[in-house]
Computed example of a mutant assay.
Amino acid sequence: MSPVLNLWKRTTGLPLVGESVGKRLFSLGFAQKAPYFATIRPRFVEVRPNYAELVIPKRRGVHNHIGTVHAIALCNGLEAVMGALAEVTIPKDKRWIPKGMEVAYTAKATSDITCTAETTQEQWETADGDLLVAVKGVRDDGTVVIDGTIRLWVTPKK
């Protein structure tokens, strides 16, 4: 089991603190691994192979000049959720690194934003080079505010 998936299961399964506190502990720990992620204060909702979900809270620290969640904060959320997915999904004999991101900003981010990343197991098993991870961010009312793909470079471990 990957260290990230192990941390998810350990923190969300703590009997004395409850699942929601465990998710907060995981979110804090994950953001420490790549400290830039802490700027959006991600709150992970679900982490499992081929799927991850987090929430970016709408707060002043991520606002742009019009009071909505800034586009780069949205991209940061997408990269964080993709990273969690990649860490818990990639086969043990492979490694990954982000290679690029293509996104479309489709609506104003006027609420908390739920970011998701999805792949299939077949993508990981057959990956030899580029692997596309589908990512999106959704407002509380269900409106997609950012949609795109993150291109990973997946290669065998040496």
Rank of each mutant, 00 (worst) to 15 (best):
113 I>G: 05
44 F>Q: 00
156 P>T: 11
140 D>I: 00
148 G>R: 00
92 K>M: 08
70 H>N: 14
79 E>C: 11
109 A>H: 04
129 G>R: 06
60 R>I: 06
115 C>G: 08
59 R>D: 11
121 Q>I: 08
67 G>V: 10
63 H>L: 13
141 D>H: 07
13 G>V: 02
7 L>K: 10
152 L>C: 03
122 E>Y: 05
121 Q>Y: 09
145 V>S: 12
150 I>F: 03
56 I>Y: 04
50 N>C: 14
64 N>G: 05
94 K>D: 03
46 E>H: 07
25 L>K: 10
41 R>A: 12
143 T>I: 14
123 Q>A: 06
128 D>K: 11
56 I>G: 04
137 G>L: 02
60 R>L: 13
81 V>M: 12
17 V>D: 08
98 P>I: 09
99 K>C: 05
2 S>E: 04
6 N>V: 10
68 T>W: 00
97 I>F: 14
33 K>D: 06
118 E>F: 00
75 C>N: 13
146 I>R: 00
138 V>D: 01
99 K>Y: 05
41 R>P: 08
94 K>I: 08
46 E>F: 09
104 A>D: 13
94 K>P: 14
122 E>D: 14
81 V>W: 05
2 S>A: 12
84 A>S: 11
47 V>H: 10
128 D>S: 11
25 L>F: 15
38 A>N: 13
112 D>G: 02
85 L>R: 00
9 K>G: 02
33 K>A: 14
71 A>W: 03
147 D>N: 15
19 E>L: 07
14 L>G: 04
95 R>D: 14
143 T>A: 12
146 I>H: 05
88 V>C: 09
24 R>A: 15
